[in-house]
Nucleic acid binder design. Structure first.
Length: 460
RNA sequence: GCGGCUAUAGUUCAAUGGUAGAACACUGGUUUGUGGCACCAGCUACGAGGGUUCGAUUCCCUCUAGUCGCCCCA
């Protein structure tokens, strides 16, 4: 019955022309196909940003106290930079880089990782003249043309730290501590897998031994590893194929053939890590997919890896690269060490834990108006309040008070100032407390002091 | 690069070999003067291209994209 009544009312409304919208008058644009996101790309929407702010804030706090300075390098670099650093036989460079020739004929690539750009900048700007080590960090988008899946997109972001110009094993320890504190702050439990891949002195001998061993077992290896045997034999060590793992289980281990310097270095790193209570576990098969690493390599994994039903992925990784700066053109030897931490992957973990990342953002006053004169006056009032540091809101394009209060409510405003024809005439204004619904008329001249008083009282 | 699953409104989901419904959201309205509630109305969708068919959103194929996994990585 009620429905019929309302329906009749609507029909009358329509008949009386209370709905000015007239379909036939609106010019219809021809249907066009929208252009959509490129594969593997993601928008970071407003409601996502709280997580980013949360991670960045925690990270910045720690980095500042450790003396890291921010650096930003371009997303586009000469492709040669990555060929020479990351390595032309790595998966990243071989099949995952976005590379193209620009109109000037230069072969360029979107950066697939942060280290090369930073090292390039270190050399190019003569940073070896600064007190060493130079500690740099960046938060940067990185691009890899992979098949998208959980925790992996074609553009992702890393917090990247580099300590350039220091060969002391304490540097590794410091990086690990930073990682530990950051993930602690984010409420993420981690385990760090660590290994040493030796240096230019001792690695060739090990590689020779390894290849000799693997060749004897060549038939038992997977197809990819058969290729790796000649191109990049160390990578066979961390192949995930069952049959390769069986072969690798009896393979010579790199830790056993490290030279004395590398051995001492690695032992020192582990000693520091013990001292600092870093949750680590040595992994003799960890080698990582980048060519430039020497000595220490590590990966940061969620503690529950393997236990959780969903697939687990590394949160971060890094290592030492004592030869890279020289290889990229520095005149002297510059040892260095760095790590990259995936921001999206940290956010996935934060979401899994349902951590409350919402900052309580309180909105103070919504300015509502009715009628043309009131709107005019409200425009000025809004600006005055804003300059006084009051968090104000408005929707001057809405006519009805109902709609404006509705909005003020949805946006979480505590107070509402209501200015209508009558108030303009009387030179007054209404203050409405949105919590209690109580409203009061005050002299217009006192509005700013009154609002400030109320904000203070409400402890906003 | 390889494999499984999926594709309907802004979102979450229905139904159907005869061109589609709901909920929430959004916009407007319920005497341009009062939000949280209610009511009314409006808006908006079959991913693209082929094929089978009288007729396909529905069945088949291809592509594209998403998702999950492999490889690899953050």
């Amino acid at each position: 019955m009620k429905k019929i009544k309302n329906l009749t009312k609507t029909l009358i409304d329509n008949f009386m022309g209370r709905r000015p919208k007239n379909k036939t008058i609106i010019k219809k644009r021809g249907k066009v196909k929208p252009i959509t996101l490129l594969r593997g790309m993601k928008d970071i929407l407003p409601q996502e940003q709280v997580y980013w702010d949360y991670v960045k804030e925690k990270a910045l706090n720690i980095l500042e106290s450790y003396g890291f300075k921010k650096i930003d390098t371009p997303v586009l670099e000469n492709s040669g930079l990555f060929l020479r650093s990351t390595g032309k036989n790595t998966d990243i460079v071989e099949k995952e880089m976005f590379t193209f020739v620009d109109e000037g004929g230069t072969k360029v690539s979107l950066k697939p990782e942060a280290t090369p750009g930073i090292v390039r900048a270190y050399i190019e700007h003569g940073m070896h003249n600064l007190p060493q080590p130079v500690k740099l960090y960046t938060i940067s988008p990185l691009f890899r043309r992979e098949r998208p899946q959980a925790g992996r997109t074609r553009q992702h972001h890393q917090l990247d730290l580099e300590v350039v110009g220091d060969k002391d094993p304490v540097v590794e320890a410091q990086l690990l501590t930073i990682a530990k504190s950051l993930y602690d702050d984010l409420g993420i439990k981690i385990i760090i897998k660590i290994n040493s891949v030796g240096c230019i002195e001792c690695r060739p001998q090990y590689e020779e031994n390894l290849v000799a061993y693997l060749k004897k077992n060549k038939t038992k290896l997977c197809a990819v590893c058969k290729k790796r045997l000649t191109k990049n034999p160390l990578r066979v060590l961390d192949c995930k194929e069952d049959k390769c793992r069986k072969v690798v289980a009896d393979a010579p281990q790199i830790v056993d053939s490290l030279c004395n310097e590398c051995k001492t270095h690695f032992t020192k790193v582990l000693e520091y890590a013990d001292e600092l209570n870093i949750p680590y576990e040595p992994d003799p098969y960890l080698v990582r997919g980048l060519d430039y690493y020497t000595r220490t390599v590590f990966e940061i994994w969620p503690e529950d890896v393997g236990k959780s039903p969903s697939r687990q992925v590394a949160l971060g990784g890094g290592g030492r690269y004592d030869d890279l700066v020289g290889d990229l053109g520095a005149n002297n030897d510059v040892p260095a060490c760095g790590m990259g931490l995936g921001i999206e992957r940290a956010i996935i973990k934060i979401k899994e834990q349902k951590t409350d990342v919402n900052k309580k953002t309180v909105q103070h006053v919504f300015v509502a108006q009715l009628g043309e004169k009131a709107r005019m006056k409200a425009l000025g009032l809004f600006e005055k309040l804003r300059k006084e540091g009051v968090k104000v809101g408005e929707n001057f394009s809405k006519g009805s008070l109902r709609a404006q209060l509705d909005l003020a409510n949805k946006m979480g405003f505590r107070f509402c100032l209501i200015l209508g024809q009558q108030e303009v005439l009387d030179d007054t204004i209404l203050i409405r407390d949105m919590e209690s619904g109580i409203q009061e008329e005050i002299a217009y001249a006192k509005v700013i002091t009154e609002i400030k008083k109320r904000i203070k009282k409400a402890k906003l």
